[in-house]
């Protein structure tokens, strides 16, 4: 397993010397039929870091994700991965460049087994099916899906489908992992397990993570820095402790009595 992940660790070290940002989002905007979903949002994700993107429903978080992942091109602004512009690329090109993503509304390949789902992702950087299978088996174990690997994905419960989303994205061996609400619907213990998995990935393999999350318990536990979006604009950024005390954030999103 560790051999397989060496690929993603190496660029991280190189990037540290030249530029600090794994992902650099500069003033991106997107409108849908005149509705401004995102306006001039800028933020960075340092190599090896974990950044949380939070905000109320409709704040433009998923739209930001979709612009980074290549689902839409931004109307204005730039997205750079390790200094290279990737905005306007197709999703498969963005993935090949090293960005793995999950979907908020899970999209498992329901007719395939859990393992085959993950093999599809693993094939991206494997020369053949047997080596992809080997890689996929390790990831399936890591995400706790081992006992269910031969079940069709249609048989999985929602928390397991979320795990499968993560497993598939990880199988593409990303330099940057985009997680779109993977904790939603999980019980607190399941949520803590998931947090532990990401921490371990981050610590042991140096994987960089940008996560959208409503579950503040997970965000506070994981994120080193938080960016808050509201009405498509960044209204606050900083460490988790700073952000939860920011009056603007309390007013628009967290509410005054939030406990974390």
């Amino acid at each position: 397993m560790h051999g397989a992940w060496a690929w993603s660790a190496a660029p991280a070290a190189a990037a540290d010397t030249e530029m600090s940002a794994r992902l650099d989002v500069a003033a991106i905007s997107k409108s849908f039929r005149g509705l401004r979903a995102v306006q001039g949002a800028s933020f960075e994700v340092p190599a090896g870091g974990i950044v949380g993107l939070i905000g109320p429903n409709g704040a433009g978080k998923t739209t930001c994700f979709n612009m980074i992942a290549g689902v839409f091109a931004p109307d204005a602004g730039e997205v750079r991965l390790d200094g290279r512009r990737i905005d306007g690329w197709r999703p498969d090109q963005v993935c090949a460049a090293g960005v793995g993503r999950t979907f908020q509304i899970v999209k498992p390949f329901v007719g395939l087994t859990v393992l085959d789902n993950v093999i599809v992702g693993a094939l991206l950087r494997s020369n053949d099916v047997p080596s992809a299978k080997k890689l996929a088996e390790g990831i399936v174990e890591k995400l706790g899906l081992g006992p269910k690997r031969d079940l069709p994905a249609s048989a999985l419960t929602l928390p397991d489908r979320k795990r499968l989303e993560v497993a598939r994205a990880l199988a593409t061996q990303p330099r940057l992992l985009l997680l779109d609400e993977v904790m939603a619907g999980l019980r607190p213990t399941e949520c803590d397990q998931m947090v532990a998995v990401f921490r371990e990935l981050n610590r042991a393999e140096g994987i960089t993570i940008l996560l959208i999350e409503h579950v503040m318990r997970a965000v506070m536990a994981l994120a080193q820095r938080i960016v808050v979006l509201h009405h498509g604009e960044v209204i606050s950024r900083g460490t988790p402790e700073e952000v939860v005390r920011d009056p603007a954030v309390l007013e628009s999103y967290l509410g005054e009595e939030t406990e974390v």
Binding site: A69, V71, R90, P91, D92, C95, A96, R101, F103, K107, P108, F109, V110, G111, L112, D116, I119, V120, G121, L123, L124, D128, V129, A132, R168, A169, A171, T172
Partner: peptide
């Protein structure tokens, strides 16, 4: 069916968006 192409075809059949997000040139 058990080649790379077979896996990619089945992924596209099940969900083209998810396949593309995994680097498949749909």
């Amino acid at each position: 069916l058990r080649s790379r192409m077979g896996y990619y075809w089945q992924a596209i059949r099940e969900s083209p968006e998810a396949a593309q997000a995994l680097g498949v040139n749909v």
